[in-house]
Amino acid sequence: MKAEVLFGPDGHLSEWSAALCVDALKQGNYSSLAEAIRGHVEACFHCQGVILDVQLFLQHAGEAGDRVLNTPEIRVRRADPVFVRLAAAVAVLAVALTLFVLFQRSHSPVGNSVTTGPTDISSPSVQRPDSGPDARTEAEPVRQPRMSAGSGDASFSPNANLESMIGSRSRSLSTQLLAPAGEVPYSHDIVFSWETTARDPLQLKILSNRNEVIFAFTVGDPPFVFRERLFPGLYYWKLESRADLLAVGKFSVRPATSPTE
């Protein structure tokens, strides 16, 4: 060969040697490769990765067409037609149900926001009287409030989707939400507390009972003190790692009982 080099200048297998390994594995004669190559691959994570990437790709591509790819798009193509039809029917039903609920809400009597909500809120969405999150947690809001929590009965009605998620657990990680639970008074700081085995930076999201994210924070160790003000209503909160929804909890903000509160 013009330049048979088993190893590159970086000490890893050359492309030539890596390709030889790929072919040998494909043809089932890996043991016929040079001892130096096999010995290196056995101990080198990097070269194992190069070989695996190409070999598995070719191995799967050699089988019937679409079986290859672990991409979500390709998996959709493999889905059973019956399953697809069923999923489509469920999706149509879900859309119809959502439209129905929205229609119902838009025609239901509006709650008395003057009597149940705070009277001194300047913003239509949320009052933000002081600084953001507690400094001890070094958390910073990653999203601004987007909606009004509303008031009246509708703001306390449970969300079926979110309710079903309460109590569900991440498969690999153990997380327990400690606080808040139940009612918290309006105008009080809300202390979020939890226990988890997750090590990543976590996202704490506060959602309305319409499943809309109102606040999201990147949080460190608990507790996290939320100093914003939420309208009275039912809220849910989620704790998420980068890849997992760890837990879902709920709490309600009780209407102010006195003008000073």
Binding site: E15, A19, L20, D23, V54
Partner: peptide
């Protein structure tokens, strides 16, 4: 013992 051109190219 040359690898196939495709394997070689795909490694690249």
């Amino acid at each position: 013992p040359a690898p196939s051109l495709t394997s070689y190219l795909l490694v690249c």
